[in-house]
Every structure is written in C-alpha cells, then in structure tokens.
C-alpha cells in the first residue's frame, strides 16, 4: 500500500464514521474511530472519573461530623456511590486504550483536570446538602445529555450514573429543606451555602459558548449534544424556583424571569475566578491534589504487597501442578 492509498483509506473511514454518528449509531470499543475522537473521549471520561474520585474529599470532610446518624448514613452511601462512579468511568476510559495507572498519574502530575467545583471547601454542614442538590443537580443536567453521547460505553455508564445522581440531588434538597425550616442558625447556614456554591455550580457547565474551543467538533461527533450555555440555562431555570421554595435568596441581583425568552436571565458570571480555579489557583486545588497524591503514595506498599502475595500464590499453584 502506498502512503497515498492510506490517506484515501482514512478519508473513507472518517466519512463512514461520521455517517454512523449522523445515523445515531453508537461507536463501540472495537470500531474504527479518528484518533482525535479517541483522545477527546479519553480526556473527557478520565476528567469525569477524576472528578468523582476527588469529589469524595469535600464531602468526606463531613462524614465524621454529620449532625445525625441518619445524615451520616446518607452521606457515607453517597460518597460510596461517587467512588463507584469513578470506578466504572475509569473502566469506560480503559476501553479506549488508556490505562488507569496512566490516568491517575496524569491527575497527580496536574496534566489531567477534574471538575473545578471540588476545589471549593466545605465549611459548614449545610455545604453537604447544598452539594448534593446543586452540584449533583448540575451534574445531572450535563449527564442526562451524555446518556445519548455517541460512544457506547460512556453512554451506558452515564445512564447508570444518572439514576444514582438524581437520588443524591433529591436527598440534598431534602437536607436543605430541613435547614430552611429550622432555626435561625440553620437558615443562615443554608443561605450561606447557597451563596458560596451558586456561581461555582453554574461554572460547572464550562465557559460560555463563545469561549469554548473544543465544543464545535464535540457537537459534530455527538460527544456533546447541547452547548454549555444551553445546559447552564436549563439548570438555572430548574433551580431558581427551588431556591424560592426554600425561602432562600438567589445570590444574584440580576437574576430575573424574562417573559420574552421564557427563561431566567442571570448576571455576569465571575469568569476571572473560573479561569483562576482552572489554572490551579482556587481555594483547595493544592489540598485536593496533595490529598490524592498522599493516599496514593501511602497505598504503594499495600498495592505492592497484594501483587507480591498474588505472585506467591500463583507460584505455589504452579509448583503443585
């Protein structure tokens, strides 16, 4: 085959690939795919997996201090779910030829990103239900869209994740409602958590469409099905009435219902903060990575011992046989 033939072949494969996408057929691990599609997916899925794992930290911060045994059990179960999501998202990324070890190394080296929301600290108990409700709520809006994403294993992982996330969001809202109906201290805690998590939650949808460099290609490949701004709007529209139901305030003086558009308008997002957190300069970026690295380093001897034991057992079996 001459190099010329190869170019032609790839063109043909790419056309066929795009036709499959346009026909809403799922791409499976053994199918041919453009290298850039594979790289985009590895980046996105591993980021998602890292987010689940790093996301254990801010919530885990309150497990030992949960104010009732019932809330403690709910929180523990939620964090366990997140770890489980991390596990099956890593597996989905592995179907694209990336190893978990490599992905984890990239996270620790600061090469791979995770959701910026987890770089904010959990400072009071109210932050826990607020995260369940706002952060999982925003994640669901993103992930419901991803249930129809073009890559089969990712789409199937999302369907499962969404079921559990919507459970978390409901539990989170119920926890906020308990605070909103409580005494002055609880109400204050509740409003303060909303104030601190409102903008970071909106920023979970990424930069505005005008500043989102990877979006167009991802939309064409149907990895993404809706734009960042469309998804953000959907979240705002569903969440503002919930804040009102709680009797709390939206921390945005410009947030108003726009009759003409049939949507809520919001004020200018704090983009400077958004890009600072992405760059690693958020309140907890340093601590989150440090904690992950420490857990990994301190687990080295455990993983080594497990492998050594496995080898010894295999050798024993062999010598018996």
């Amino acid at each position: 085959m001459t190099p010329q033939d190869q170019v032609v072949d790839i063109d043909a494969l790419e056309t066929e690939f795009q036709e499959r996408i346009d026909a809403e057929k799922k791409i499976e691990p053994k199918d041919w795919m453009p290298e850039a599609y594979r790289r985009t997916l590895i980046r996105q899925i591993s980021q998602h997996a890292h987010s689940e794992v790093v996301g254990q930290l801010p919530e885990g911060n309150w497990i030992t201090r949960a104010p009732s045994l019932r809330r403690k059990a709910i929180l523990l179960a939620k964090v366990q779910d997140e770890a489980g999501h991390g596990l099956y998202l890593y597996s989905a990324a592995e179907t694209l030829g990336s190893s978990r070890e490599q992905m984890v190394d990239d996270l620790h080296a600061g090469k791979a990103k995770y959701s910026s929301i987890f770089n904010y600290p959990t400072l009071s108990w109210a932050d826990i239900p607020a995260i369940g409700w706002l952060v999982d709520g925003a994640a669901i809006v993103n992930q419901v869209a991803l249930c129809r994403t073009s890559y089969g294993p990712y789409s199937r992982a999302m369907i499962r994740v969404c079921k559990e996330e919507s459970f978390h969001a409901r539990q989170g809202f119920e926890g906020m409602l308990a605070l909103a109906r409580g005494n002055e201290a609880q109400k204050k805690m509740c409003q303060d958590a909303i104030n601190r998590y409102w903008w970071p939650a909106l920023m979970m949808f990424g930069p505005s469409d005008a500043d989102s460099p990877n979006s167009a290609q991802s939309m064409k490949w149907k990895i993404k099905r809706f734009s960042n701004d469309e998804l953000r709007q959907k979240f705002v529209d569903q969440t503002v009435p919930q804040i009102e139901y709680l009797g709390m305030e939206v921390p945005d003086a410009d947030c108003k219902w726009n009759e003409e558009r049939g949507h809520y308008d919001i004020g200018e997002m704090p983009w400077e903060e958004f890009f600072a957190v992405i760059k690693g300069h958020g309140p907890c970026n340093h601590e989150r990575l440090q904690a992950r690295q420490k857990a990994h380093d301190e687990g080295n001897w455990v993983r080594e011992a497990a492998l050594a034991y496995q080898k010894k057992q295999a050798d024993k079996k062999q010598s018996v046989a």
Partner: peptide
C-alpha cells in the same frame, strides 16, 4: 479512610 484508601476498590 473515606477518600484516602490505598486504591479505589478498597476505598469502596
């Protein structure tokens, strides 16, 4: 140990 285990499966 939550979030600090030696690896993800054991965290769970």
């Amino acid at each position: 140990w939550c979030g600090h285990g030696p690896f993800l499966e054991e965290d769970i």
